[in-house]
């Protein structure tokens, strides 16, 4: 029997639940040199701010057991260049709507970026990054304080013509509280998890490896943490949850969906293997066959019902 991998997100049907996560796929078109990226369910674009940013000084990345650290610091060309140059470049090689990830340092900046997006048909939704741990002036501060987060989501909802997916930080004591707060403020969906704050020290110099000392830990090692948070959040809210964190194969995609994910983002794995997202999409029907699953949309949150 043919396997049905379609899922729905904000009323749009995705051919499959696989979405490369923001920051691991650039603005997408670079990967079109390696394979036909139209196989992807959608794409979450590199975090975009109001103005161009270089980001943090080097070193920005570091190897870790079962993962990596990054402190890129939101390097991006700014919202206008993204809308006027990057999106048209992507459109030539990718026909589906994408997720625009936006970051900021102040209410005004987030609001201005969200307003400029307008009704652009190439954009499926805004992913509000209130969880970047690598920007000194803020970003994550919005994701650590439920009052700030609610206020921001409320303001963004006023100006955004697109559904708002709020990306949560795992660096909180109570993820459920945060999730409920942004849901009450009007969020249309929740994506989680962003990276876990970590660090490493160079044994020869005794200095932190990363220029800004701390950085976000991602990769296979965080999968159980991410899965737990997706499970808890799904139980607590009535809006779609997009799961991510250490996903590296089709079985983990299914596990995320059983926990409650309506779609699944693949992050660090894209950096280790540029074909990772494509390979996971190809493995999905085989994994479904093995687990006797006919339709992916039917298993969303199934672990809560058995």
């Amino acid at each position: 029997m043919k396997k049905d991998t379609q899922v729905k997100l904000f009323g749009k049907i995705l051919d499959n639940p696989i979405i490369p996560a923001s920051g691991t796929f650039g603005f997408g078109y670079g990967f079109a040199d390696y394979y036909d990226i139209n196989v992807l369910g959608s794409i979450a674009l590199k975090g975009t701010t109001l103005n161009e940013r270089y980001g943090n000084p080097l070193e920005r990345v570091c190897d870790c057991p079962c993962g990596m650290l990054n402190a890129i610091g939101l390097q991006n060309p700014g919202i206008d260049v993204v809308l006027n140059e990057e999106l048209p470049k992507l459109k030539k090689v990718y026909s589906k709507p994408v997720i625009l990830n936006i970051g900021g340092h102040s209410f005004d900046e987030y609001i201005e970026v969200a307003s400029r997006v307008g009704g652009n048909p190439q954009i499926l939704c805004i992913e509000l990054n209130i969880s970047c741990p690598n920007v000194k002036e803020g970003g994550m501060q919005f994701g650590l304080d439920e009052h700030l987060a609610s206020k921001l989501v409320g303001e963004i909802k006023k100006v955004s013509k697109k559904p708002v997916l709020v990306k949560l930080s795992p660096n909180v004591t109570d993820i459920v509280k945060m999730a409920k707060a942004v849901e009450n403020a009007g969020a249309d969906g929740i994506s989680l998890i962003n990276t876990l704050v970590g660090m490493r020290i160079d044994l020869n110099t005794a200095k932190p490896v990363i220029s800004v000392k701390t950085a976000g830990y991602s990769g296979r090692g965080i999968f159980p943490v991410a899965l737990r948070m997706v499970y808890q959040v799904y139980e607590a809210v009535n809006i779609p949850v997009v799961g991510m964190g250490g996903v590296s194969n089709a079985f983990e995609v299914i596990e995320m969906m059983l926990a409650g994910a309506s779609a699944v983002m693949v992050g660090t794995e894209n950096l280790l293997n540029p074909f990772a997202s494509k390979e996971i999409i190809e493995e999905l029907p085989l994994a479904m066959e093995e687990l006797n699953i006919d339709s992916l949309s039917e298993i969303i949150g199934k672990s809560h019902r058995v």
Binding site: G23, T24, F25, G26, G30, F31, K46, Y54, G55, L58, E59, R60, V61, C62, M68, N70, I72, Q75, N270, L271, L272, P274
Partner: peptide, 27 residues
């Protein structure tokens, strides 16, 4: 030479400043 995340332009882990803007050492 640079430490790199991906090596093919996706992660911005090796970006440097040049007179023609930010460039990725790997790409």
């Amino acid at each position: 030479e640079s430490k790199m995340g991906c090596g093919f332009g996706a992660c911005m882990g090796c970006s440097i400043k040049t007179t023609k803007g930010y460039k990725r050492v790997c790409k």
